[in-house]
Design a protein around this nucleic acid. Structure first.
Lengths: 141, 141
DNA sequence: TTGCTCCTCACGTCACGTGAGGTGGC
DNA sequence: TTGCTCCTCACGTCACGTGAGGTGGC
């Protein structure tokens, strides 16, 4: 029994004829795509191209775009912009999570549920803003 | 004396021959761009096209892209992606500002500078997280 | 040897820009 | 009337895909 039957998505396994058949294009077309900077397959030490599953997905995107009438320079730029776009979306997601977290911390657990150990006395207007809502509620309760 | 000498950027002022000259292209080219959905000039009630300064800037971008070898379908999609991209960047900026603001509120004024009025007693592990660092410092001090 | 790989070159097709041609309203 | 606008159609050019042709290494 081998350990893995499926190659990893980034693993370069397909020679050009297989990749072309899987992508539904002419092998020469793949060479053109490479020359135009749309795709960069791994090269074996001998110099032959090897395509990964990730490459095939990229080729599917390229096929969609060219079928829609975009030429290769357009495809190249669109792929770049879409990558940047994904990066920005990720960043928005991360920032939103951080912000939600921060706001939760600000809202805090309702201070009314706990009481604070005696430490000393402070004039109410010197309370740090962050403590004020909870403290005010405690003093009223 | 008139109030304004310059049209607003979005104001449709140029007829097609002028817009074409300013953009450095054939008037017929502008009609093609419109048919392909790259630009949508205002139309007078009589049906003639009127281009704004904003339209001219868009035309400059289109000129850059086509000069770089992108065809019109590619240009159309790139313009869309770039708009979405700008929107995302703005959103990242907004979220960053909000997050910085929230973190500033969380940091607050150092609790060590004040002491909290006696309210009662609480077991230390029941302290709200938001109060803990300041309180801990007070108890040590 | 066979079947692949590598490359370059040539041809057919199509998109785009330009211009001609004919129309109509300020 | 002149000079613009509107439109459609045709032609030249160029990018892209396909295939041929010749090479070399498993």
């Amino acid at each position: 029994m081998t350990e893995r039957q499926q190659p990893r998505p980034g693993e370069a396994v397909y020679i050009i004829s297989v990749a072309a058949r899987l992508a539904g294009v002419h092998p020469q077309t793949l060479r053109i795509y490479e020359r135009k900077g749309l795709i960069e397959p791994y090269r074996t030490p001998g110099g032959t191209r090897r395509y990964s599953q990730d490459d095939l997905e990229r080729l599917a995107t390229i096929a969609d775009l060219t079928a829609a009438g975009v030429n290769l320079e357009g495809v190249r730029r669109i792929l770049e912009l879409e990558m940047e776009n994904r990066r920005l979306r990720d960043q928005v997601g991360r920032l939103r999570r951080l912000l939600a977290e921060a706001e939760e911390r600000i809202a805090g657990r309702p201070a009314g549920e706990t009481v604070v150990r005696t430490v000393g006395v402070v004039r109410r207007r010197h309370l740090p803003d962050i403590l004020r809502p909870g403290i005010e509620r405690l003093l009223e309760g």
